[in-house]
Structures are given as C-alpha cells and as structure tokens.
C-alpha cells in the first residue's frame, strides 16, 4: 500500500502551497489521476484521512478526478478510450499505440482559507507547472 507514501508527498506539496500563500487552513485538495498511475483512488482517500492529521490540511477534503485511459493508434491514428489492460487499437488491433491519458498523478488544485483573500481562483504562480 504505497498510497500512504503518495499521500505524504501530496500533503508536503499542499503545505508548501499553503505556506507560500499565507493560508490558515486547507479546505479542499483535488488530485487528478488515471488508472495507469498505479494508485488506487479508494486507498488514497483512506490513507489521506490518516496522513492529514495534525497538519494544515487536517480537516481538508480530498477530491479525486479520474481521467480515462485513452490511446492513439500509431498506424491508423484512431483515438479511443479503453481498459488499462487493453492497450491495443480496437480498430486495427495491431501496431504501437501511444497513451493520450490515463497515467496522471497530479496535485491539481488546493482550496484554502486565507484572511483577506478575495474569494476567487488563482494559478500558483512560481510553482505552477504542468507535468
């Protein structure tokens, strides 16, 4: 069950964001992930309730957005949604496929309470990056 290790890294990143923005409390954390990340959403949620204790996110909610497994066929170019263990083009059944989505494991958003914050949305400036 490596979800606890993933949670610890998640909370470390969340704390960094919260500290940098002067938040007093983290309310909601959104993780975006796919089935090929190797992380089980249910286990991640359970691990989260243990790992969050005592930190700035100790009452935060964890929302998980799952992305589907999508592949693109290298031969016919067809893009399709598929099961994690069926990474073959459903049309031509041959050829190499590339993964379009389904292996993400990303901290997507953090909602925080911050005195003086206008209720709104921002991109976490310095650290924002796409993986």
């Amino acid at each position: 069950m490596h979800e606890l290790a993933v949670c610890q890294e998640l909370l470390r990143q969340v704390s960094e964001v919260a500290d940098r923005r002067g938040a007093t409390r983290v309310l909601r954390i959104t993780v975006r992930m796919g089935p090929l990340s190797g992380v089980e959403p249910g286990l991640l949620k359970r691990a989260f309730t243990i790992a969050r204790a005592g930190g700035i996110a100790d009452r935060a909610r964890l929302d998980i957005e799952t992305e589907p497994v999508r592949i693109r066929c290298g031969i016919c170019g067809e893009e399709s949604e598929t099961a994690p263990n069926r990474l073959r083009c459903p049309d031509c059944r041959s050829g190499p496929v590339s993964l379009v989505s389904g292996d993400a494991l990303v901290l997507a958003r953090v909602a925080m309470e911050r005195p003086g914050a206008a209720d709104g949305h921002a991109i976490d400036g310095e650290e924002a990056r796409y993986v």
């Binding site: 309310l27 494991l105 990303v106 997507a108 925080m112 309470e113 914050a117 209720d119 921002a122 650290e127």
Partner: peptide, 18 residues
C-alpha cells in the same frame, strides 16, 4: 457564512520529488 477562500491551480506531479 463566508470564508476568505481562494482556489489555487497547481498541476504538480506527485512523484516529482522521487
């Protein structure tokens, strides 16, 4: 009731440090 809240987009990989 109102919170002074903000939602921050991060999009940072959770395996990045490893």
């Amino acid at each position: 009731h109102e919170h002074d809240t903000e939602s921050v987009q991060v999009m940072r990989g959770l395996m990045e440090d490893n």
